[in-house]
Computed example of a mutant assay.
Amino acid sequence: MLRRGFLSVRTGLTDDGVRKSAAALAVRALELPELAHARSVAAYVSVGSEPGTLALLDALHARGVRVLLPVLLPDNDLDWGRYEGAGSLAPVRHGTRMALLEPVGDRLGPEAVSGADVVLLPGLAVDGRGMRLGRGGGSYDRVLARLERSGADPALVVLLYDTEVVERVPAEAHDRPVHAVVTPSGVRRFR
């Protein structure tokens, strides 16, 4: 029910509002020291009214950062491919879900995320503890568990709208807090 509420608010956003928020998110995110010094960033391509990522992906790519993007596997785990600009993306439909933009090049394997300096995570909300509410598919829970198992310790950053930073979201034992949330109006750090 909580997820539906956040998704409902997003559905009500105008295209112009989404575009303006995406531009502000890119500016704010690029000010993060973690991204300023990153050689490799695992990110994602926003869909629909999600907080926009394409401007940020393009800026990182233009800086020479190795940008990894997810490829959804049949079991909801994620493989990874390189982002080489907007022309390196293709829409892929997974069953009845909305088509996702995925990288068209070589697949690097699920473990490729372990080499990222920063992981940009999608979400619906984050709370004052840094706990992230995802969409419920478990893809990024697997990514975070994989990072932990490998001993990798990238900066974990979630991109959200201002209204999605809330007092508390439900958390389970396997959930991991993020290090920061970036919204169009600023950055909030945790830990």
Results as ranks from 00 to 15, higher is better:
L60A: 04
L57N: 02
Y140I: 05
L133S: 08
L13D: 01
M131Y: 14
L108E: 05
D16E: 15
T183R: 09
L156V: 09
T53G: 06
M131Q: 06
E102V: 13
L156F: 10
M98Q: 09
V41S: 09
E50D: 10
S185I: 01
R188H: 07
R142F: 00
G134T: 04
G17K: 12
D127N: 13
P74Y: 11
L73A: 08
R142N: 00
L108T: 01
A23Y: 01
V166C: 11
V27C: 10
T163N: 03
G95R: 06
G136A: 09
F190W: 00
R3V: 01
R168M: 01
R39F: 10
V67I: 15
A59Q: 12
L68A: 03
R189W: 13
V92G: 00
L120T: 02
R146F: 12
S150M: 10
V113L: 11
M1H: 10
G115A: 08
T11M: 14
G12M: 12
G48Y: 13
G123V: 11
A62V: 09
V165I: 10
D162E: 11
M131G: 02
R82H: 12
L108R: 02
A26P: 04
V104Q: 11
L56P: 03
E34G: 07
S139H: 02
G130F: 10
V143Y: 00
G115Q: 12
D77Q: 08
R135E: 03
L2P: 04
Y44L: 03
T183N: 07
V27R: 15
L30K: 03
V158M: 08
V126T: 12
R82V: 12
V143L: 10
L56V: 10
R168I: 02
V9L: 14
A155Q: 04
L7C: 05
W80I: 03
T183K: 09
H94N: 13
H37D: 06
S150L: 14
Y140F: 15
P51E: 06
G128K: 04
A99L: 09
P170R: 11
M1D: 14
P74E: 13
V119L: 07
A112P: 06
A99E: 08
L54H: 14
S139P: 02
G138Q: 05
T53R: 11
A24C: 12
A171C: 13
A55L: 15
V157D: 02
L156Y: 07
P110S: 00
P74C: 05
R63K: 15
A29D: 06
L159R: 00
G151Y: 10
E34C: 10
V65E: 03
T96D: 03
R107T: 10
D15L: 14
E84L: 15
F190H: 03
A24H: 04
G128H: 12
A29M: 03
T11D: 13
V118N: 01
G52P: 07
L100D: 01
P91L: 07
T11H: 15
Y83A: 05
V182E: 06
R82S: 11
A112F: 09
H37I: 05
V41H: 03
G81F: 11
H37L: 14
V47K: 15
V165S: 08
R39G: 15
L54A: 10
L147V: 05
A145R: 15
V169Y: 05
E167T: 13
A145C: 05
D58T: 15
H174T: 05
A55Q: 14
A38P: 04
A145P: 03
A42K: 06
L32I: 07
L60D: 06
K20C: 02
L108P: 05
V165Y: 07
A42H: 08
L7W: 09
R176H: 13
